[in-house]
Amino acid sequence: MKKKVEVLAPAGNLPSLRAAVDNGADAVYFGFRNATNARNFEGLNFSLEDAKAGISYAHRHGVKANVVLNTFPQADDPTLWFRTVDETAALGADAIIMANLALLDYCHRQHPQLPIHLSVQASASNAPAINFYQRHFGIARVILPRVLTVAEIRALKTRSDVDLEVFAFGGLCVMAEGRCYLSSFATGVSPNIEGVCSPARAVRFENDGDRLTTRLGNIMIAQYGPGEEAAYPTICKGRFEANDHVYHVMEEPGSLNILEMLPDVIESGVVSLKIEGRQRTKSYVATVTRVLRQAVDSYYDNPQTFQPKGKWIKELNATSEGATHTLGTYEQRWQ
């Protein structure tokens, strides 16, 4: 029998990690509480002690634990990043997730036993790029940026033997990740350097009578009328004017959800289905992990007749902003 695709769950803290493990994740991923990880939100993430406890909990339950180190070291003091690579190797993590060439090079030379997963922040979306990372750094896996259709993923599999991980559920970056400067263009704060897109400190919600305005830095991201639900202001989910219309010019707020295409995605040859959302709550992690576990198991029970259950879709929609979902770029017509 073919090896089952992995359900990979996010953990913003220890309780979320336990929730992921307890709800059927095959693997979890988390990052440290500093600028080395691209979900550097306030009050989140792991200390070294938390990381030890988390890895130990995961391993006791036969679950893998991947550590994220996916921002780009700054020139003034890169030591934090290199030190974190060493610490991760010492922790006994199952993989380290990185994007920066210098860190990849360092880790490959210093810790050849530690499997490297190429972060989505490296934006490696084609065979020459992926095979280049394999050749130079021995990467075991690449996390694909959310720019490929399922057909493109299936075809890519024939041109590279690096394992592929894809996003299955959660917030949807619609740009080539790690190379998107929209947030810093409005705020001056770089996700690539400081690890946070649309940082809370740059966000404002302003009430004016029955209208609600959201801003990022000084830029108006959207204005809402009575009864409209306001989304967290990120530029790619904002409401702007183009071609004389006001609309979500780039993408509507909502979640990526691949359930409707689950068989296609699994059969494209990916090894891991990643749930986005290290910044989300423990109950989000528990719900999404449990639903995805059930869906994946149900697919393997009977691949030919797999249908996403209405109950699953409802539960997943309830976790998502705007309570809507999309297949995103996996489906050609989205583009």
């Binding site: 490929l148 259709t149 619609v174 740009m175 080539a176 400067y181 263009f185 780039m250 770029t329 583009q335």
Partner: peptide, 9 residues
């Protein structure tokens, strides 16, 4: 040049 996407805006 701020960003690229698979989608054409």
């Amino acid at each position: 040049p701020l960003t690229f996407s698979a989608r054409c805006y």
